[in-house]
Amino acid sequence: MLLTGCLINPFAQDAQPAAEPVAKAAKTAITRQVAVVLSNELPDFVAIANEPENRLGNEKVTVHNLDGKPGNAEHVLAEVDAAGADQLVAVGLLAAKVGREQQSRPMVFCQTYNYKQYGLLSETSKGIGLLPPFDKQFDTGHELDSKLKRIGLLSGSNQEDLLAEIRLAGDDKGIEVISRVVNSDKEALLEFKRMMANIQGLIILPDNRILSPGVLRELMSLGAKHRTQIAVYAPGLLNLGALVSFTGRPTDIAGAVITRLENIQTDGRIPGPDLVPLKDISVQVNPAVADHLSLIIPARLARSPGSR
């Protein structure tokens, strides 16, 4: 997939009037070569990759797929070099880790949770938040259950800022967030067992350091048994028994990526915060679980997928 073209410099000025008519000065053309690297071809990843092609129609954009295999890194980076890319967009953790290994071009990463653990941040490498706004998540929680007052939260280490953000958003919405930092999937399961009698809901963050397929299934089974409202960040987990899934919308994510690309300085530095937060949210509710919990799904959320 390849698009070519150029951007017009918005800061170029027309020539000032002279005594004799003169032609206006031509605006400076900027050509940006953007390589989008996908960890794999998950539908949301592909949707994010399509946006730069659609919205940067007068720039050159190439899309490259690692197909979920770290062994493809050398080949994909060679493709990026051959395309003459001077900016890189990494979609997903594998793509971000591969992009980190190259130092020749600035990188904007997205759809990545444990970015600190993998050393993805630098002056020339910054990202887009993975999780949608927590105030909108808690608003949705209250729409589903107006009596929701206390929820649990399981997290791996080095997420103190995120946990504080979630607790603050909960406080603003009248929801107490009881968080536990754990170091393994077994510890996560143990902490849930300890807290489940005192909570109405549980947030399962997308932290692969403390989650495994077996523990996820057991968490869901216990949640169903104890009528716990479980929120996740991947629609695929609804089939395991989660009540609701919150994700960012691909257009919102891609828009934030494009803005960061446009703000990259000539020396490759990326101004602004380490992560730009998402503004929008997509919500999907599991009707079978809602029925089991005796919850009525509002009409706005009954559409699949819902968004706000």
Rank of each mutant, 00 (worst) to 15 (best):
M1R: 08
C6P: 00
L7Q: 14
N9P: 06
P10D: 10
V22L: 04
I30G: 00
I30T: 06
T31N: 10
V34Q: 07
V34M: 08
V34D: 05
V37A: 04
L38E: 04
S39C: 04
D44S: 14
E51K: 08
L56R: 06
L56N: 06
E59S: 10
N65E: 09
L66A: 08
E74M: 07
V76F: 04
E79H: 08
D81P: 00
D86M: 01
Q87M: 11
G92R: 02
L94W: 06
E101F: 04
Q103S: 13
M107I: 12
Y113K: 06
Y113M: 11
Y118N: 09
E123A: 13
E123K: 09
L130Q: 07
D135C: 01
K147I: 03
L153M: 15
E160D: 13
A164C: 01
I166D: 10
G170L: 09
G174H: 09
I175D: 12
E176Q: 15
V177K: 10
I178Q: 14
R180A: 14
S184F: 05
D185A: 15
E191L: 05
K193R: 14
R194Q: 15
R194M: 14
M195C: 09
M195R: 08
M196T: 13
N198H: 15
L202P: 05
D207L: 07
S212C: 12
V215E: 09
K225W: 05
R227P: 06
Q229S: 14
I230E: 11
P235F: 08
L240Y: 12
A242Y: 08
R249T: 09
G255K: 03
G255I: 02
I258S: 01
T259L: 03
R260W: 02
R260V: 01
I264M: 02
T266Q: 03
I270R: 01
I270A: 01
I281D: 04
S282N: 12
P287L: 10
A288E: 15
H292V: 11
H292T: 14
S294D: 15
I296F: 06
I297G: 10
P298N: 11
R300E: 12
S304N: 13
